[in-house]
C-alpha cells in the first residue's frame, strides 16, 4: 500500500460527504438559529425527486405533455434530474418554513377565523425547533414509504473509474464530488460577500433588531435562507442518489455527519464547514483505511467530542482568534 497516495485519494470522498451533508444545516442554523432535525429527510427528498425525475416521473404529472427529462440528450439527463431535485427540495423547504418555522400560514388562517395568531415563530427557539422538525422527519419518512414503497430503482453511477497506486482504483464520481463540495463552499462565500441577500443575511445574524430597524425585511431573509438551506440539502441528496440505495430512511446516514460538522465548524458557515470537512474527513480517511470502517467512524465521533469540549465555539472561532491576534501584531 502506498500510504501517501492512498490516503490522499481516500480523503476526497470523505471530505465531500461531510461538507455536502453539512452545508444546508449550517446555513439554517447559523442564520436562523433553527436546528432542523429533518435535515436528513430534506436530503432524502432531493434524492427521491432526482431519481423519480430521472426515471421519467415528470412525464406522468397531470398537464405535462411529455417527459422533459427524457427528451434531453443522454449526457444532460442526469444533471437536469438533479436540478429538478434541488428545486423540488427548495420548494418543499419553503412550504415547511411558511407553515411550521415561521407559522405564517397557520397564523394567517387563524387571524381570519378566531382573530389572533396561534403559532409563535421558531427562530431562536432552539429546542422547540428541534422537536418540531423531528416531528416533520417522522412524518416524511413514513409518508414516503407509504407513497413509494420500501425502495426505488436507482440511478447508475456516472463516469468510470480512476486508477492509481498499485492496482488501486476509485470511482471517478467520488473524486468529482469533492470538487463539487469545494465549489459549493466557494459559491456560498460569493453569495454571502457579494450579493444583496448575503449582506442582509449577515446583518441579520449579527443583530436582528438592528437589522430590522435599518429596514431589512428579516422575514423575507429567513424565508430565502430556509429555501437556500433546503435547496443545498436537496443538492446533497441529488448528488448522492447515484451512489446509494434510495430508501425512505436514507437521510439518517447523513444526519450524524451533518450535525457533528456544524458543531465542530462553529459559527461561520463557509470557514467552519470547510475546516470541519477537512479535519473530520482526514480523521475518517486515515482510520478507515488502516483499521477499517468501524474504526474510522468511532474516531470521527471521538474527535468531534474532543473538539466540542476543548474548542466549544467551533473551529471557525479559532480562525477568528488567530486573525485577531495577527491584526494586533501587525
Amino acid at each position: 500500500m502506498a500510504p501517501g497516495v492512498d490516503l490522499l485519494v481516500q480523503f476526497f470522498p470523505s471530505f465531500a460527504k461531510i461538507v455536502l451533508a453539512a452545508t444546508g444545516l449550517a446555513i439554517i442554523f447559523g442564520i436562523m438559529g433553527v436546528i432542523n432535525l429533518a435535515h436528513g429527510e430534506f436530503i432524502m427528498v432531493g434524492a427521491y425527486a432526482t431519481t423519480l425525475a430521472y426515471n421519467g416521473a415528470l412525464g406522468a404529472l397531470p398537464l405535462v405533455p411529455v417527459d422533459p427529462i427524457g427528451v434531453l440528450p443522454g449526457a444532460v439527463q442526469l444533471p437536469a434530474a438533479m436540478l429538478t431535485g434541488v428545486l423540488v427540495t427548495a420548494l418543499f423547504g419553503l412550504v415547511v418554513e411558511r407553515t411550521v418555522i415561521s407559522g405564517a400560514v397557520p397564523n394567517w388562517i387563524a387571524e381570519r377565523t378566531i382573530g389572533r395568531p396561534v403559532v409563535k415563530p421558531m427562530y431562536d427557539r432552539l429546542l422547540d425547533s428541534m422537536v418540531a422538525t423531528w416531528g416533520i422527519s417522522l412524518i416524511m419518512v413514513q409518508l414516503v414509504r407509504n407513497l413509494y414503497g420500501n425502495s426505488l430503482n436507482g440511478i447508475g453511477i456516472p463516469f468510470g473509474q480512476f486508477s492509481y497506486g498499485n492496482g488501486l482504483s476509485i470511482s471517478t464520481y467520488k473524486l468529482v464530488l469533492a470538487g463539487v463540495a469545494a465549489l459549493v463552499l466557494l459559491l456560498l462565500y460569493v453569495v454571502f460577500v457579494r450579493t444583496d441577500y448575503g449582506m442582509r443575511a449577515r446583518a441579520t445574524i449579527q443583530n436582528e433588531g438592528m437589522a430590522k430597524s435599518l429596514g431589512v425585511d428579516t422575514e423575507r431573509t429567513y424565508m430565502a435562507t430556509f429555501a437556500l438551506g433546503s435547496g443545498l440539502a436537496g443538492l446533497t441528496g441529488a448528488l448522492y442518489a447515484p451512489l446509494q440505495t434510495i430508501v425512505p430512511g436514507m437521510g439518517g446516514g447523513f444526519l450524524v455527519e451533518a450535525f457533528v460538522a456544524v458543531v465542530v465548524g462553529g459559527a461561520s458557515v463557509v470557514v467552519g464547514t470547510l475546516l470541519a470537512g477537512g479535519l473530520l474527513g482526514f480523521v475518517y480517511a486515515l482510520f478507515a483505511n488502516v483499521w477499517g470502517t468501524f474504526a474510522g467512524r468511532i474516531m470521527l465521533l471521538v474527535v468531534a467530542i474532543l473538539v466540542i469540549r476543548f474548542v466549544p465555539q467551533g473551529l471557525s472561532s479559532l480562525v477568528e482568534r488567530i486573525r485577531d491576534r495577527w491584526a494586533e501584531v501587525s
Binding site: A132, W134, G135, L138, M140, N146
Partner: peptide
C-alpha cells in the same frame, strides 16, 4: 405519521 403530526 400520526406520531409526527401529534408532535408538530
Amino acid at each position: 405519521v400520526i406520531n409526527g403530526l401529534l408532535l408538530l
